[in-house]
Computed example of a mutant assay.
Amino acid sequence: MRNSPRWWNGSVNCRLEWRPSRLLQALLILLGALAAVSVLASEMPRPFAWPVAIAALAFGVWRARREGRKPRLAFWFPGDDRMPTVDGEPMREASLQWRGPLAFLRWRQRPGGPWRHAAWWPDTLPALQRRELRLAAGEGDAGRHRRDRAP
C-alpha cells in the first residue's frame, strides 16, 4: 500500500555544542552574595565577618568568571556502534546522566586518562536537542512514560 507510513530504521545522529551556561554563572554569583549576607547576619564579630563576607562574594564572582571562560566544545553522538566524539577526538567510557532537564556527560579522551565533564543546563540545551541527545546516546528510557506502554 502506498499510503502506509515508511518507518526509518537508521540511527539517530546528534551534533551539539556545549557552551558555558549563563544561568549557572548567575547562580554562582547569587550563591556568593547569599553566603556573604549569611555571614553578616550571623553573630560573628564584625571585624571578622566583613573580610569573610567579601571573600565569599569574591569567590562566587571568581567561580562564575572561570565558568564563563571555558572553551566551547563540539559533540557528535552517532547513535550506532561508532564511538562518540568531542572536537573530533573519540570519547572513551562516555557516561550520560540526567537530572530532570540537566544533562551530565563524563568521558575520557584516552584509556586511563583523566575524566572530563560537561553539563548542559536548560539555557544551553533546548528541549528538542535534549530529546535528540537522549535518543542518540542510547537511553533505554528515551520515552517519558515508559510504564504506560505495552511490552
Rank of each mutant, 00 (worst) to 15 (best):
R46I: 12
G140Q: 05
E89V: 15
Q109I: 08
R144F: 08
G113R: 09
F77D: 05
G138R: 05
V86L: 09
G88W: 11
E132K: 06
W7T: 12
A119V: 04
L24Q: 10
E139I: 10
L27W: 06
P90Q: 02
L105R: 06
V37R: 13
P126Q: 00
W76L: 08
G138L: 09
M1V: 02
D80L: 09
P126S: 04
I29C: 03
R99Y: 01
P101T: 07
F59Y: 01
D148C: 08
P45R: 09
F59R: 03
R130S: 11
D81T: 14
E132N: 11
A53S: 10
G88M: 10
A150C: 11
G143L: 14
A26D: 07
W50L: 12
R149E: 07
A137T: 10
R6W: 05
W76H: 08
T124R: 04
W121P: 02
L31N: 15
P111T: 05
R106H: 14
A64D: 08
P47V: 03
P101F: 02
A55M: 09
A35S: 15
L24M: 09
M44S: 03
E17I: 14
A94S: 02
A103P: 03
L133I: 02
R69V: 01
V52N: 14
W120H: 02
A36N: 04
